[in-house]
Design a protein around this nucleic acid. Sequence first.
DNA 1: GCAAAAGTGTTGTGTCTACACCCATGT
DNA 2: ACATGGGTGTAGACACAACACTTTTGC
Lengths: 232, 232
Amino acid sequence: MAQDRFATLNREPTHVVLAVVVQIRGGRLQTLLWQRAREPDAGRWSLPGGVLGAAESLEASIRRHLAAKVDVAELSHLEQLQTLSEPDRHPDERQIATAYLGLVPSDADPSLPADTAWHAIDALPPLAFDHQGIVQAARDRLRAKLSYTNIGFAIAPAQFTLAELRDLYAAALGRAVTATNLQRILVRRHLLEPLAEHRAPTSAGGRPARLFRFVHRSLEITDEFAVLRPRS
Amino acid sequence: MAQDRFATLNREPTHVVLAVVVQIRGGRLQTLLWQRAREPDAGRWSLPGGVLGAAESLEASIRRHLAAKVDVAELSHLEQLQTLSEPDRHPDERQIATAYLGLVPSDADPSLPADTAWHAIDALPPLAFDHQGIVQAARDRLRAKLSYTNIGFAIAPAQFTLAELRDLYAAALGRAVTATNLQRILVRRHLLEPLAEHRAPTSAGGRPARLFRFVHRSLEITDEFAVLRPRS
DNA sequence: GCAAAAGTGTTGTGTCTACACCCATGT
DNA sequence: ACATGGGTGTAGACACAACACTTTTGC
C-alpha cells in the first residue's frame, strides 16, 4: 500500500494532535483552552495540542504537548476521539487533526500558563477552526460512557462522599442526579466500594457521610450489550 | 499550532486509510481482504485501502480506494473507527493509518478483483501489520451498535422476514437470537415496521412470513443513556 | 428539640427473556 | 392429517426511578 502512487500531489498534510481536557470545576463541566497568539484566528480560543513528531505515537504526542500546559500526571484518563480531515478545515494549509479526550479528577488544580484557562463547556467563547464540534463530541462521549463504563473514576477524587459524586455526575450529565439511585447502580455493578471512614459534617450539622472509592481506576465496560443478551 | 516547531524530523509520515468492509455471507460475518503482492508482508492478507490524497477528506479517500475493489454504491454505512500511529506499526516507513468500518447489506454480491476475497471474521488468516486488531475493533463496534442504534438497517436487505433478520443478528452478535424478542425490541423502538406483503413459503410448507423494513436507513441512536435518566 | 444532611425501605413501572401456545401454509 | 415454519400471549425476572422514612450529627 505504501508503494501505491496516484495522480495527486505527493506532499503529506501536517498532522496535529488536539485534546479536550475536561474537569469539573465549581460544579460545571469545563475544558482547557489556549488563546492563539498568531494568525490564523489570532486571539481566538482553541484546543491545546501541536504537531505530531516523526517518531512518536499520537498518544505520546498529545501527552508531550499537554505537558506544556498542565501536569500530565493529573490526567486520570486519555482516549482517542476522532480524526478530522476536511481539506478546508484550516485556512492556510492542509492539516489532519486527531482529537483526544482527557479527564482530570475534580480535586486536582494544576497551575496553568498565562495564555491558558478553563472554560465552561456550556458557555464557550467562539473557538478556532472546527474545535467547537470536537468539544461537543468529547462531552457526548463522556456522557455516554458514564452510563455503561466506570469512567466516573476519572472525574472523581480518590475518595469522595456520595453527595460529592452525585454533584460530579450531575455536572457531567447536565441534569439532576439522585444520590440514592446513583449509589445503588454503582454498587450493584461493583464499581463503587464503601470505606470504613466517614467525613465529618460541617458546622451546618448533618449525619457524617461515608467515604467511597471506585474499585478500579482504569476504564472498564460494565454494561455491555444491554439488549439481546441471554439471562445467564 | 501549525507554526510550532520542535526538535524532531520535519518529514510528515505517510497517511493511509483502511476499511473493514463487513457483510454477512452464508450466515457468517465476513470481511473483505486483499492479498498483498509486494513486500513488506507479500502474500499476506490485508485490509483494503490506500494513501490519503492531498485534497481529499479521509472518508472521500476510503471511498475512492474501495471503489477499486467493490461497487461503493453497495456500502450502506461507513464510519470512522480509529487512527493507528505506533511508530513501528509498518516495518519500512512511518505510517499513520485511519481505519473505517463499512457495511454491506446481506443481499448484495459485489464482483471482486482476483486479489480480493471475503474471509470469515472468526477464522481469519494471519493478517499484515496490525490489521488483526482493527478487524476485532470493527466487529466489536458493530456488535455494540446493534444494541443501541438502528445499525441493523445496514446489514439487512431493504425488505426481509423476521427469521432472516434474526439470522443476520445472530451472525453479527455471534450468539443465538430469538425472532420473537428481536421483533418486539425493534418494533417497540420504532426501528422496524411491518409491510403488507408476505413471503411465500418454500416447498417445505409453513405459514407465509410477513415482510418488514427498517423505518430509517441512516444511523440513529435509539437507546441513549440507558441509566441515570429520569422517567420523564 | 430542631434543622440539616446522609442513608435505607419500599413501591411501582417499564423492559426484557423465556416459553407455551396458536396460526397458516404445503404435501 | 400432519409437518413445518411464522406469530402471539403471558408470566417471571430484573433494573430502575421515585419518594417516604429513618439515622446521625451540629446548634
